[in-house]
Amino acid sequence: MSFLLDGEEVPFIPGQTIMEAARAAGKYIPHLCWDHEFAPHGSCKLCTVKVDGRFGAACTVAAHEGMNVDNRSAELDDKRRTLLQMLFVEGNHFCPSCEKSGDCKLQATAYELKMMSPHFDHFFPDRPVDASHPELLLDFNRCILCELCVRASRDTDGKNVFALSGRGIKTHLIVNSPSGRLADTDMAATDRAASVCPVGVILRKRRGFKVAIGNRTYDKAPISEQPQ
């Protein structure tokens, strides 16, 4: 069984999504909220592809025999760039002072898609930092609401440390304690949720700039050339 991804044949096993099949074939479809370890979520829409002329999220659409999928077309990459710009302006992303810089999927994807500017007016939201936990830091300024931490904590760690609250543009991540402090949850630095964040929200304390800028994950090769 196979389908066409940008004109190239990609095999798949029935039940796989377009994203899963592409990953197995070593093909890159831009994505942020998807991770092969967790159930698909479909919220960032970076993986938007065109399936036989219709738009869909590659991480949620099932692969079908013979379908024709556009992935890295100019039209789609253009839309993806706009989505990235939306994610940048709705939060506060100052890469020069972010520990995640160089290891950050949002940034790396923006490089891959040649995002030269945030384009839109910034929202400059007022978002907190939570340093209460002895080993972990939460900087909500950079949250892209991908819910990977929500899924990791719930499905892998069995803990439910993270959840979303609010609605619309006021949607925000909360932790599972009435005080709102991470220290008052059962979060441990060894949890899967502690290392799942694709951006610089959930950070290990005192690790900071251990690996020098220039030697980090996406300094070595663009995200599209790395294993997903």
Partner: peptide, 18 residues
């Protein structure tokens, strides 16, 4: 041409914006 992080997104000075 906007050159550098501060011209592009406000940079460090913009961290006072909240």
């Amino acid at each position: 041409v906007a050159v550098g992080a501060c011209a592009v997104n406000g940079g460090l000075p913009a961290q006072r914006n909240h």
